[in-house]
Amino acid sequence: MIQAIAFYFFATIVVASAVMVVMARNPVHSVLWLILTFFNAAGLMVLVGAEFIAMLLVIVYVGAVAVLFLFVVMMLDIDLAAMRAGFSRNAPLGLLIAAVLLAELLLAVGAYSAGGLSLGSPDGAAVQAADKSNIEALGALLYGRYIALFEIAGIILLVAMIGAIVLTFQAPKPGARARQDVGKQTRRRPEDATVMKNPEIGQGVEL
């Protein structure tokens, strides 16, 4: 009973806020609705007993990815008139994409109602999930049965990360301003930078 109420509560908010992501006029509002969607999706994950995935969803998507989204979108100069200017030009392409998505949705729903396709379930012999916590069960699968896929995914991410660093890294040009040396800065003491002068009255200070 409570599960059903909670499910429909979270699911309604997920769908409604997902609609609002598209409908909101202000991009910042869109991102905030998107965050609400992520958060309630995490609630759905908790309901099916995948609390580890739920926490990861919040930490990774809400805590990091969406913050970066918001970071970029907030800095945009939003001009609604200019955004709507290209409407008639972009409309055919938009309609095409919308039609493709609608067709895919209908196909998926139709295929599902015609009877689920059995792709074979992963055999549960590798791990007895019943008596283990979420994290242990996932860990046993990821570091046991699917170790190769897991490592490949890790290497792909590493390559992507290094690629991004290489693309944005600029070697300091010769003759550019001297780079800061934090050690040197913190080692600097008042004695190194100042001198005490005690001139006679009527005499100036030579610096």
């Binding site: 965050i35 995490a42 580890f52 926490m55 990861l56 919040v58 930490i59 809400v62 805590g63």
Partner: peptide, 19 residues
């Protein structure tokens, strides 16, 4: 049993108030 992750998740939400 995911208490520490919960704290990490919730504290990562804290930035939204400020932003």
């Amino acid at each position: 049993n995911v208490g520490l992750l919960y704290i990490l998740a919730i504290s990562s939400m804290g930035v939204y108030g400020v932003v």
